[in-house]
Amino acid sequence: MIRVVICDDHVIVRQGIKQILADAGDIALAGEAGNGPDAMTLVRAGAAAGTPPDVVLLDIAMPQRDGLDVLKSLKAEFPRLPVLMLSTYPDRQYAVRSLKLGAAGYLNKSADSEQMIDAIRRVAQGKLFITPSVAEQLAGAVGAGIGSRKGGVGDDEAPLHERLSHREYQVFGLLAAGKSVGEIAEQLVLSSNTVSTYRARILEKTGVRNDVELALYAVRQELMQV
C-alpha cells in the first residue's frame, strides 16, 4: 500500500481526495492536515514511529505557511520523501518553482481522478510526474538557463518575474490578487515594513509603477486568471 498524507486547507477538497484514494485500492490515507505546520507534525510523527508516508499531497495556497515554504522544509528534513504539489493556479505560475524546490510533481486540481492516482503511483516509485503543459514550461526555463550560460538568450529575455526570489514571488502573487500590504503581512507573518520593502523590489524588478500595473502584468503573463 502507498501511504499518503494530504495537506489542504479546504475540508471538502480533502474529502474528495480521500474518496479518490479509497477507490484506488492500493493507496491508503496516512493522515490529513489543514495547514503546513500540521503537515510537518504528521510527517515527523510518522517518521518517528517508523511508518513514514510514501507520498505527501501538498496544496500551494494555504494559511500560515504556503505550500512552497512547507515543501522546502519537508525536503530539508526528508529529502527522499516524494511531494506532489496541488494547485488551482495556472501551471506556469508555480510548476517550475515547485520542481526546482524538489517537488516530485505538480498537478492542477482540475485534473481527473485517474491522473491523480497515476501521479501518486509514479512519484511513489521515485519517478517524476510532469504533465505536457508543465514539461513545456520546464523546457522553457531550462532553455533560458542554457542560453544564458552560452551567452545567447538568457535572463535578459526571460520573463521579468523569473528574477524574483521565492518570498518576492509570494508577495507578488498576493499583490496581483488585490491584497493590501497589511493583509499580506498578516498572511505571511511578516511586518508591514518588510512587505513594503518586498513590494518596492518587485516593482523595480518587473518594471511596473504600481499594484494595478502589477496585476495587469500578471494577467498578460498568464500568471493569474481573470
Rank of each mutant, 00 (worst) to 15 (best):
residue 200 A to K: 15
residue 71 L to Y: 05
residue 59 D to S: 07
residue 209 R to G: 13
residue 41 T to C: 07
residue 33 A to F: 07
residue 89 Y to S: 08
residue 197 T to G: 15
residue 15 Q to L: 09
residue 174 L to Y: 14
residue 54 D to Y: 04
residue 181 V to D: 15
residue 51 T to S: 12
residue 69 D to C: 11
residue 118 D to S: 15
residue 216 L to W: 13
residue 62 M to E: 05
residue 179 K to D: 06
residue 6 I to T: 11
residue 179 K to H: 14
residue 179 K to C: 09
residue 183 E to L: 05
residue 190 L to H: 15
residue 94 Y to I: 09
residue 210 N to P: 10
residue 26 D to W: 11
residue 190 L to N: 09
residue 39 A to G: 07
residue 49 A to L: 00
residue 225 Q to Y: 15
residue 41 T to K: 06
residue 211 D to S: 14
residue 214 L to G: 13
residue 179 K to Q: 12
residue 189 V to H: 15
residue 170 Q to Y: 05
residue 74 L to T: 03
residue 189 V to E: 12
residue 216 L to A: 14
residue 34 G to S: 14
residue 195 V to Q: 03
residue 122 R to M: 13
residue 191 S to H: 07
residue 93 Q to F: 02
residue 60 I to R: 00
residue 195 V to M: 02
residue 214 L to K: 14
residue 59 D to I: 03
residue 84 L to I: 08
residue 84 L to Q: 04
residue 63 P to N: 10
residue 83 V to L: 03
residue 191 S to P: 08
residue 145 G to M: 05
residue 33 A to I: 04
residue 226 V to L: 10
residue 126 G to E: 08
residue 130 I to F: 09
residue 35 N to M: 02
residue 30 A to Y: 11
residue 8 D to M: 07
residue 196 S to Y: 00
residue 113 S to E: 06
residue 118 D to T: 15
residue 27 I to L: 08
residue 210 N to T: 12
residue 20 I to K: 04
residue 171 V to Y: 01
residue 19 Q to E: 10
residue 58 L to Y: 06
residue 24 A to Q: 02
residue 120 I to C: 08
